[in-house]
Amino acid sequence: MKLSGKAWKFGTDIDTDAIIPARYLNTSDPKELAKHCMEDADPEFPQKVSPGDIIVAETNFGCGSSREHAPIAIKAAGVSCVVAASFARIFYRNAFNMGLLILESPEASTDIVTGDELEIDLTAGTIFNKSRNLHYKAQPVPVFMQELVAAGGLIPYVMKRLSSSE
């Protein structure tokens, strides 16, 4: 599976309060959460982001709380993938469970800047920076994990498999 989009660059230790501040957690409605996605890191992000765009960050993306509202907000904002040097463990698990694609690539995370046009091949684990004609290696996403994301997350994926085995 391949995807392409424009990069939005963030730094290290982007925490879940930056991704979706707790003051908005009186709902789990994806549309409402998307309106405040990354607000405390970049107040204009919800207005600027376009469908298919890619968030690129440095180490420990998603540290802090276990709130699944964080990957929900990013996905509902239209972001197709998050690329980071590393992810916090609860966020990593939540992202796949929610159907948000994430990719580890230390070299891409330090090189990419906001505005770069990226093309990602998930199976091969490669990122192509079209704006500057550069290639980066990433941890490939196994096919079953791609299917899990395509199904919309863990629960729809399990239900789909149950119904196909009946």
Partner: peptide
């Protein structure tokens, strides 16, 4: 626990960790 501070119970000698709502 669906709360990151579930790790608190390690103080009792338990293995305790936070997960998301789907898990």
């Amino acid at each position: 626990g669906a709360d990151s501070h579930t790790c608190t119970y390690g103080g009792l000698g338990a293995f305790a960790t936070g997960v998301g709502s789907t898990d």
